[in-house]
Amino acid sequence: MARYVAKRVLGMIVVMFIVLTTVFIIVRLAPGDPASLMLGPEATPADVVALRARMGLDQPVVVQYFSFLGQIATGNLGQSIFFNQPVTQVIAARAEPTVLLTLFSIVIAVAIALPVGILSAYTRGSLFDQGSLSTAMLAASVPSFWLGLIFQQYLATGAGWFPVSGFGSPSATFFERVHFIILPSIVLGIVNSALIIRFSRAAMLDVLNDDFVRTARAKGMSEWRVVIRHALKSALIPIVTVVGLTFALLISGAIVTERVFNLPGLGSLVVGAVLRRDYPVIQGVLVVIAGLYVLINFLIDMLYLAIDPRVKY
């Protein structure tokens, strides 16, 4: 076990090094110039050259690369060109909306998907099963931005139940900010529930015909107990995997949804940083996201140990 964990941690370090180098190269390959964007339309080429020098963007790329690696090694993600703040501080400021959005979305997605998936499997071939599969297919096919715009128009602008966009005024309390998160969470919850429904249904179908389920029924257990206590427990591994990956996807920034609802989370941050060519922020966010992916995958593997005694490392 300890050997396995050590091997995984070493693998994570190698993956992160590859990610760091790739991110650095990709960001530098993209055309565009933060100095030119900052100075605005009336700036002359000479103004741009002068500002690039003041920002240190005229340094050779190799120097910038080693400086970047050196900073990362000390836990420093650099300084944002546009915000003039440490990147860690910029990312920390965006964590709240993204974390809230992720948690609420995942809760909504699981709350929809798990009962529907189980019931679909249990009533395989029924009208409910067909209907839920078609609905899941539809939800998976609907672009989140479209659903977001529709909800915005009818539930926010029309009915006035929710704010249209943003994350609250400067004086907003935590619960008022939560209010801003609900509508985008519903959108993401619906869209992401589709995959979980299909996985839950498939996983449950696999186990519902297993011998141990038949044995449980033969022992006279109630259907509820058979399905939930025995079948569901065995079907959890693929469900946990897909929920974990959905979580990783959401925490890395639901880019389109954050943009539509103007949520100042990690997704909006990375889009804004790309448009502004704020290299340190792009690098910092991508490194954090990659790190989260690697970590969540590791945690999912560890979770298998807890939920399935057959799994041994």
Partner: peptide, 22 residues
Amino acid sequence: AEIDFVPVPDGNTRIEGAVAGQ
């Protein structure tokens, strides 16, 4: 007493927010 400038880069979101009175 206070002026709050809210950056809303998406044009459609600005319109929806305006129509909703936000």
